[in-house]
Amino acid sequence: MIKVNNRPFPHEKGMTVRDVLEANKFTYEGLIIRVNDQLVEDRDHIIQDGDDVKVIHICQGG
């Protein structure tokens, strides 16, 4: 199990940042991704079981 935005999310072996975004339908352009508080820019970064993933959408509306 990992955490995505402080919510539990099932972990799969070999799962990448891209997989997490797709599974959560995070399609927004302005994303900042941090894994265990470290900025991650590579969408192919492998997520380990227990990781804390934060996907920050910057939008503040119209």
């Binding site: 935005n5 402080n6 919510r7 995070f26 927004y28 934060k54 996907v55 920050i56 959408h57 910057i58 939008c59 503040q60 509306g61 119209g62």
Partner: peptide
């Protein structure tokens, strides 16, 4: 009107302000 505050992503999606 949303020009004061638009917090939907911060709250609902990012879960930054629990």
């Amino acid at each position: 009107q949303h020009d004061e505050a638009w917090l939907i992503f911060m709250d609902m999606v990012n879960n930054q302000i629990p």
